[in-house]
Design a protein around this nucleic acid. Structure first.
Length: 498
RNA sequence: GGCGACAUAGCCAAGUGGUAAGGCCGAGGUCUGCAAAAUCUCUAUCCCCAGUCCGAUUCUGGGUGUCGCCUCCA
């Protein structure tokens, strides 16, 4: 039973899909006016995991994420650089994909853009005008919040409350200070589109309403984004959409908002200038570590970013990575026939073998616990803790095996393969260990490297036999500074790239 | 001024009406020529006060503190 925290009701609710075995998701994308910072990445990593989990549960997932490619800030950037708004948005959309791909975020089914959804947006505005929810003034078309009796239901505000200390600019032309633009009349030097209300461009908010309704229908399951979008963005989306459709239960059924990433406990934001771009972070840390960092905290909690934090995460991640490597190695050993397969099924294997029998029991139990955690509002932090628990026992098994403490029974093979499968299932939902084929072989000369390493290691082993520690240590130290780590284990020497 | 969230070990972070997952760091042990990796053991009565309850860190009220939204923002 999957429970989701719904911002609309402010509590966890049992998830009931609108259509059986299908989930529709609209996640607010970015306004591509510059390169994404780590805070921007959080919702997309969060939703990526949610999507993966739904897929794993057997749902067909339809995921839409927009680009707001017509916007004040894009126009401002274009004017500043003396290029077109299109150039700015295209450049930043490319940069968006570059870093989000690196973070192993699956592509959305569709990435609609404002500039390509203009007709639908205009039609929606027209409907709102026709129905009397919007009015025209010189600046453009505005939505009248007073006409919407439900206005404020997502953010828990009342129109009256907001007037008092509101920091909104007083604009006498608007009927109410909270009214917001659906269509902005073109000003000199700005891009514009023709419409029944004159030349202009859409206001913020309307694009997401138009796109989600266009591609997901009048009702869909999820709408998500950062917590700062709750007001006014999502509030306004709800107002427009439901007034347009004429059904207060239409539009998104579950509102999911992620917490902020902070720097020294203060919200990271471009306007405040306290941000780290994903690009810069990826120069120093592996993408999987960055992704793992974002998922080690529940998505609704605030997350403080710092170098220390991410270094710490790297250490933790490495433990899991080690387990992944160990399982792969065990699998290779099994394939090489060292574990003779005497049994034909897992059940017999568990009964026959003592060594790994407990391990598979544990793995199955942790796998179930992992799902329980995910079912509880996508608690990746808890889910990941079960991976660590499994990791510990797998590593113990591996260490015992490697040091010859026991000789594996044939049935161990079955068990280890099943344990690996379970571990990979969990990793697959978190989205790690998927695209690391053979890192050693990433270089074109992998075979050569392999041979050279063999030679170097054998020279060092000779030195070690002669107790020539100076030479042995020198080789190890110099390799380390070249990025190669040697580990002396009972069976010989293991090497890996740092 | 209005609305809301959070407050758990040295640090980060889950969580539950019946005395607290996991990670990092630290100490000690095993392994090792050393190192690394791995593993084992050890480290918290959950901001304060009051209330409900047999029993609260978990519920209610108050207080304090931190943060967020109300302006563009993931």
């Amino acid at each position: 039973m999957l429970q989701v925290y719904n911002t609309m009701t402010k509590r966890k609710e049992i998830f009931k899909p609108l259509k059986k075995n299908e989930v529709s998701i609209y996640c607010c994308g970015v306004t591509p006016y510059n390169t994404p910072h780590i805070g921007n990445a959080r919702p997309f990593v969060t939703w990526d995991v949610i999507r993966r989990y739904f897929s794993k549960l057997g749902y067909k997932v339809r995921y839409i994420q927009n680009f707001t490619d017509v916007d004040d800030k894009i126009i401002a950037a274009a004017n500043r650089e003396g290029v077109t708004w299109k150039e700015i948005s295209e450049r930043n959309i490319n940069s968006y994909f570059k870093v989000m791909d690196a973070l192993n975020i699956k592509r959305a089914d569709l990435y609609p853009k404002v500039s390509e959804t203009m007709e639908d947006i205009i039609l929606m505005i027209q409907t709102l005008v026709d129905k009397g929810f919007a009015y025209k003034i010189e600046d453009g078309i505005y939505f009248s919040v007073e006409k919407d009796e439900h206005y404020g239901k997502l953010s828990g505000r009342k129109i009256e409350d907001m007037q008092a200390g509101a920091r909104v600019e007083v604009d006498d032309k608007k009927h109410h200070p909270m009214d917001f633009a659906l269509w902005k009349s073109a000003k000199p030097g700005e891009p514009f589109w023709d419409s029944p209300f004159g030349k202009g461009r859409p206001g913020w908010h309307i694009e997401c309403s138009a796109m989600s309704l266009k591609f997901l229908g009048e009702k869909f399951d999820f709408h998500g984004g950062g917590a700062d979008l709750i007001f006014p963005h999502h509030e306004n989306e709800i107002a427009q959409s439901q007034c347009c459709i004429g059904d207060e239960n239409s539009f998104a059924q579950y509102w999911v908002h992620n917490g902020f990433i902070t720097i020294d406990n203060e919200k990271m934001s471009k306007s405040a200038g306290n941000f780290f771009t994903v690009e810069d972070i990826l120069k120093k840390y592996p993408a999987e570590v960055v992704r793992f960092f974002l998922l080690q905290t529940h998505y609704r909690s605030p997350l403080d970013f710092s170098e220390d934090r991410i270094k710490e995460t790297q250490t933790a991640y490495n433990r899991l990575k080690n387990t992944f490597d160990n399982l792969n190695e065990l699998e290779k050993i099994i394939e090489s026939g060292k574990f003779v397969k005497q049994t034909t099924d897992l059940k017999t294997a568990v009964i026959t073998v003592s060594q790994a029998g407990g391990l598979v029991d544990l793995a199955e139990r942790l796998r179930a616990a992992f799902d329980d955690a995910m079912n509880d509002d996508f608690n990746t932090a808890l889910a990941i803790s079960y991976m660590f628990e499994l990791s510990r026992d797998v590593n113990s098994y591996y260490a015992d095996y490697m040091s010859g403490k026991f000789s594996p029974k044939g049935a161990d093979a079955f068990i280890i393969l099943r344990v690996k499968e379970i571990f990979m299932e969990m990793a697959g939902i978190i989205g790690i260990f998927e695209n690391i084929p053979e890192e050693k072989n990433s270089s074109a000369n992998s075979e050569l490297v392999e041979k050279l390493m063999e030679i170097i290691i054998s020279i060092r082993q000779t030195a070690r036999k002669e107790k020539n520690w100076t030479t042995a240590d020198k080789i190890r130290d110099e390799l380390k500074s070249a990025g190669i780590i040697l580990e002396d284990i009972p069976q010989g020497v293991k090497w890996k790239l740092n």
